[in-house]
Each structure stands twice: as C-alpha cells, then as structure tokens.
Amino acid sequence: MKQEIEDYRKERDKLEIEESISRIYPFITRVFDVYEIQKSREILYFFGTPKADTENIMGELWAPLEQRGLMGTLRYELGEHVLIVAPMKKAKEKVWVNFALFITTVFTTMICGAWMFGADLSNEPMKIFQGLPFTFAIMAVLGSHEMAHYAMARYHGMKTSLPYFIPFPTFIGTMGAVIHYRGPIPNRKALFDVGVAGPLVGLFVSIAVTVIGLNLNMSSVNPLSDSLMFEPGFPPLFVMIQKAVGVTGSNLHPVAFAGWVGMFVTLLNLLPAGQLDGGHVLRAMLGKKADRISSMMPRILFLIGFYVIYWLKGDGFIWIFWALFLWAFAAAGHPSPLHDKIELDKKRILVGIITFILGFLCFTLIPFKPII
C-alpha cells in the first residue's frame, strides 16, 4: 500500500512538472536553447545556451511568464547559463495601512493649514477645521502626482502599491507620498511613461491650485511668514501665473502656498539623477548614457549651494543637502529595463524635453528666505 501511494505521488509530481514545462517551454525555446531541465519543489531550472543577447532574454520572457503567475531569472553559474523559473510571490496589500496614513496626513496637514490661517489651536482646538482648504490643496497636489505614477504603472502591467502618504511635523505637515514598485521595468517606454506622468499631472494640479489660491480672499489670512518663519522664493512659473492673474506681493493664501509647494516638489522630483522621476525620464531617453549626467548632478547642486551661500549671501543649504543626498542616492545607479535596447519614439522625446523645461521653470536659486 505504501509503495502504491509513493508511486502515485511520483506520477502526480511528474505530471505537474510536465504541465508546468509545457505551459512555458515554447516561449523559452524562442530565446534559449535548452539541453537540460531540473526541478526542485516549485522551481524549474532550464540549462541551455542563449539564442539572443542575454540582456533581452528576460525582456522577451517577462510578459508570458508574468501572465502565468511566474517569474524568471537568468544566471551564469559554473560555466553554464541557467534560467530559473519560479511562482510569483503575491504580496498581500494592506490597504488599511494606506488608509491610516492618509487619514493621519489629512490631520497633520489640517493642523498646519489652521496655523497658516492664524488659528490658536491650544485654546480653540476646534478651529483645526480652518485648515481644510490647505489640506484639500496639498493632498490634491501630492496625491495626483503619485496616482499618476500608479495609473501609468498599472497600464504597463507593472506591479505597484497604492500611494503611502507620509505624515510628518514639517511646515506642511507631510513628507509627501510614495508608491512601491514590485518586479522589473518592462521597457524604456514604460519607464518613461511612469516617470513622466507624476511630475506632469502633479504640476498641472499645482498650477490649478495656485490660480485658485491667488484669487481667494486674503482678509482672513495672517501673513504666512508669521507661521512659517520664512518667505518662499518664487520660481519663474509662479511669477508668470501671478502676472496672468494680476496678483502681486509675497504674502500668499495657504491654498496658493500649496501650489508653490507642488512646484518645488516637481523641481526636486525632476532632478535628472538616480531613481528620481527625472532620473527615470532621462534614463529612458538616453539609455545608459544618462548615468554620466546623473553622476554630475550632485556636483552641480553643490556648486549652486556654494554660490548662493557665499556670493548671494542667501540660504543655499537646501542645495547642499540635496547634493549630499543624491551622492548616496544616485551612486546605486538605475536598474535597466528588460527591453533596454528599444529606443523611445520622437513624441516621447519631445514630451521629455518639455517636461524638463517645465521643471526648470520651477527652479529658483533661493527657495526659502528666512525671516530675521
């Protein structure tokens, strides 16, 4: 009886192996000449010789494997190429974490918004709701940026989490939002589309929020400098909007200030370095040549900070901080897309150039002017 059970298990395992192999074998043999197959539990090992460039093999196999709930890795071990295929581990989404962080960020931004409106929360805590206009504005600016990344990543079949908002006791009550990508980048088009979507959508919402804020009544608003202890330096894009709306002066409604924050965030995200959005876009446009520009950005930012501090006698430490940050952040390089040799079309190149121009219009040498 025991022998019969053992034989049954072996036969079942054999059929499972044959079924697994039959599902993917035709796709593998297009790019990989297989001469031996091994199995260890749920993992299949295909030993063989690449028929194409090793960089493009996984690009060809990613879609058919992903559609069947599998993932693959090509390795070169002990003089042999081996393609390792295993079931894809599905990460369970803890949506309650996203929701909890969102609610907490709404609360922290509302506190900051209420301060900007001059509310004394220590004596009148219910005036916290005065900060709702700023909360709606800043959450729209930051949320639209990340949701654009999320939507474009899902469009290209990439695995990604919902946005995680980061509540933090800064002058706006948050450190922004992030999403977590899982798995490889299919190709340079996907890398470009995902990278460019966030800054463009976020900047569009920032412009809309700025226009709305500049048209709001300032009579019930205290000077922002009283609560922030600094005056914001206006980038060219913000100044152009002010002129178009017909509003002058450095004091801003909190909603307009949220638009300013969105422009500053767009600028930082579009720095062409590492895995910032600008780094994604540049890597997609130039391929591996982008690494040279990425490595230069920390030096450029350091020189800008040095110039602002010693020549303009202004606060340039933000650029020194980002130079140091990018030195570590960009040093790891940028992961290559699976289809790295397929170049972008002219339309995407044009959109990329326009995006960097818009990012430059969000730049100002002195973004923060401390109140002495």
Rank of each mutant, 00 (worst) to 15 (best):
T104E: 10
P223T: 09
V106N: 05
A52H: 09
E18D: 14
P26Q: 08
K90H: 15
W260A: 05
I43Q: 11
L365M: 07
V308S: 01
P50I: 06
D13I: 08
I84Q: 08
S40M: 13
A331V: 04
L301D: 00
E55F: 09
A197E: 10
D33W: 00
L271F: 06
E60Y: 13
I84L: 10
P125K: 05
K288H: 08
L270H: 03
T29K: 12
G113N: 00
I111R: 14
I28A: 10
H334T: 08
N187I: 01
V31K: 12
K51H: 07
R75I: 15
L252F: 09
V82Q: 11
T174A: 14
G198V: 06
T364F: 01
G333V: 05
A137W: 03
G249T: 01
M263D: 03
F47S: 02
S144Y: 03
H339N: 11
T104I: 14
F317P: 01
G305P: 00
F264R: 06
G249C: 10
M71G: 15
I24L: 14
T355A: 15
S206P: 14
I185S: 04
I43E: 11
Q38L: 11
F302Q: 06
L271V: 11
F134L: 04
M88R: 15
M126K: 08
L303T: 02
K189G: 12
S20E: 15
F107S: 01
K347Q: 10
E60A: 14
Y181R: 15
P272H: 02
R68D: 12
Y164S: 07
I17G: 08
S20I: 09
L78A: 15
S336R: 12
S220H: 13
G274A: 10
P50S: 05
T108H: 03
I179R: 09
T160S: 13
P223W: 10
D277N: 04
K243A: 07
R41C: 06
I43C: 06
K159Y: 05
G249L: 09
V194H: 04
A258T: 04
G316W: 00
D193R: 02
G316T: 01
E55G: 09
D13V: 07
L344E: 00
G305K: 01
I309A: 00
F356E: 00
A330S: 14
F302T: 04
S40V: 14
A273F: 04
G274N: 01
V106C: 11
F192G: 00
D226V: 09
K159M: 08
S294L: 02
A137M: 06
M71K: 15
P87L: 09
E124H: 15
S219R: 11
Q67G: 09
N56V: 07
R348E: 03
K51M: 06
R283P: 01
W260N: 02
G131C: 03
M297P: 02
M116K: 06
P64L: 11
V308G: 00
P133W: 03
L312K: 13
D193V: 03
A190T: 02
F325R: 08
V205C: 11
S336E: 14
L271Y: 01
M158D: 04
L74W: 07
H180P: 10
A197R: 14
R23D: 15
R9L: 10
F168R: 05
T104F: 14
G262Y: 05
P370H: 12
G79V: 04
W322R: 00
